Simulated assay, not measured.
Amino acid sequence: MNHSEPIIMGVLNVTPDSFSDGGKFFDSDLAIDQAKSMVENGAGIIDIGGESTRPGASAVSLNDELERVIPVIEALTKEINVPISIDTSKPEVMEQAISSGANIINDVNALRAEGALEMAAKLKVDVCLMHMQGNPRTMQSNPSYADVVGDIKSFFKERINACERAGIELSSITLDPGFGFGKNLGHNIALLKNLSEFHEFGVSILAGLSRKSMIGTLLGDKDVDSRMIGSVTAALIAVENGANIIRVHDVAETNDALKVWQQIKYFRG
């Protein structure tokens, strides 16, 4: 996924327990309407997830995840004309999602689950590899790094090598440093300030900061519903620092901010 202009990835959580939209789009029809609205407002990718990865989230069975995401993907392929990403770590979900019309695998576990790497290679689609220290159940208990940027670079180097050995081409890979996934506030800020360093791998970079607790903390402990402007600001900083894809909930607002930023950045007066 190589992009010259930043792409907005709209988040569509088909879960009853997502931290950000609290099951608002758990109903398939509402999820489909929300995805269409995000595309109209500027989303270039729709990212569909059926298992919450918020801190402390419990695991979801394979059948439950499939029942949540597959009907939505099947319906959306007929309704929207942008790529659909499946946010999953399970190889069986990857396979059924791609065969139902999804185009991208977005894995918070960086294809480390048993069979996931082989499945992604077999499906021959773009993949996004995210860094996470620990797992969603435990990741925020006490995250620690010798050097957060360097440690995550080492992780990405290992995962890229594993992908290439499995037959996944470098041009198909996007990297996501995993803001908030086993990171404290200092780690998150260091990653955002040094995001451009991940371009040394020669692939696209995805940044997902939208409505996360770091935004709330930076704003004096604002709750999830009050983090929109902070999230849009963080998305712009991510783009300025090299992000090619920004994963957001507030698509229209982020799109407006990007339009202003781009017109000023490229203005020739």
Results as ranks from 00 to 15, higher is better:
residue 212 K to A: 05
residue 198 F to I: 06
residue 185 L to N: 14
residue 192 L to N: 01
residue 180 G to Q: 08
residue 199 H to N: 09
residue 182 G to F: 10
residue 206 L to V: 13
residue 184 N to G: 09
residue 191 L to V: 11
residue 184 N to C: 13
residue 231 S to T: 14
residue 234 A to C: 01
residue 184 N to I: 03
residue 202 G to E: 12
residue 188 N to Y: 05
residue 230 G to S: 04
residue 203 V to K: 00
residue 189 I to Q: 03
residue 201 F to W: 08
residue 199 H to A: 05
residue 193 K to M: 12
residue 199 H to K: 15
residue 196 S to W: 07
residue 229 I to Q: 12
residue 222 K to F: 13
residue 179 F to R: 07
residue 185 L to P: 05
residue 224 V to R: 03
residue 181 F to G: 08
residue 191 L to A: 12
residue 214 M to V: 13
residue 230 G to I: 05
residue 204 S to H: 03
residue 229 I to S: 14
residue 196 S to R: 14
residue 224 V to H: 01
residue 202 G to S: 06
residue 195 L to F: 08
residue 195 L to S: 00
residue 193 K to H: 13
residue 179 F to A: 11
residue 232 V to R: 00
residue 202 G to Q: 09
residue 235 A to Q: 00
residue 185 L to A: 10
residue 189 I to E: 00
residue 199 H to V: 02
residue 180 G to N: 02
residue 189 I to P: 02
residue 219 L to S: 09
residue 228 M to N: 07
residue 225 D to I: 10
residue 177 P to G: 06
residue 235 A to R: 04
residue 229 I to F: 14
residue 187 H to W: 05
residue 215 I to M: 09
residue 226 S to H: 15
residue 191 L to I: 15
residue 212 K to W: 06
residue 208 G to Q: 09
residue 237 I to A: 13
residue 225 D to Q: 14
residue 205 I to C: 11
residue 216 G to L: 11
residue 233 T to Q: 13
residue 189 I to A: 01
residue 227 R to P: 00
residue 235 A to T: 07
residue 184 N to R: 08
residue 236 L to N: 02
residue 198 F to K: 01
residue 222 K to G: 00
residue 201 F to V: 12
residue 230 G to M: 02
residue 210 S to H: 01
residue 177 P to I: 10
residue 186 G to R: 08
residue 221 D to W: 04
residue 235 A to V: 03
residue 177 P to W: 04
residue 223 D to V: 13
residue 185 L to T: 14
residue 178 G to W: 07
residue 183 K to M: 03
residue 216 G to R: 09
residue 232 V to M: 03
residue 204 S to G: 15
residue 234 A to P: 01
residue 189 I to T: 07
residue 182 G to M: 11
residue 225 D to Y: 14
residue 215 I to Q: 03
residue 229 I to W: 15
residue 214 M to S: 11
residue 204 S to L: 06
residue 226 S to Y: 06
residue 219 L to E: 08
residue 188 N to I: 02
residue 234 A to W: 03
residue 185 L to I: 15
residue 208 G to R: 01
residue 236 L to G: 00
residue 199 H to Y: 07
residue 217 T to M: 14
residue 213 S to T: 15
residue 218 L to P: 04
residue 179 F to H: 11
residue 234 A to D: 03
residue 187 H to E: 06
residue 225 D to E: 15
residue 231 S to M: 04
residue 181 F to T: 05
residue 221 D to K: 12
residue 215 I to P: 02
residue 211 R to L: 12
residue 178 G to Q: 05
residue 218 L to T: 09
residue 183 K to C: 06
residue 181 F to E: 05
residue 185 L to K: 08
residue 214 M to R: 00
residue 228 M to E: 10
residue 201 F to A: 10
residue 183 K to N: 02
residue 230 G to E: 08
residue 188 N to G: 04
residue 208 G to S: 13
residue 232 V to C: 01
residue 213 S to P: 07
residue 201 F to L: 03
residue 200 E to Q: 14
residue 226 S to F: 04
residue 211 R to G: 01
residue 228 M to Q: 15
residue 210 S to Y: 04
residue 210 S to M: 12
residue 207 A to I: 15
residue 194 N to G: 04
residue 192 L to P: 00
residue 205 I to F: 04
residue 220 G to F: 09
residue 223 D to P: 15
residue 178 G to D: 08
residue 234 A to G: 11
residue 178 G to F: 02
residue 197 E to Y: 06
residue 190 A to H: 04
residue 189 I to M: 12
residue 213 S to C: 06
residue 224 V to E: 07
residue 198 F to M: 09
residue 220 G to E: 11
residue 207 A to E: 12
residue 233 T to W: 09
residue 235 A to D: 05
residue 186 G to P: 02
residue 212 K to Y: 10
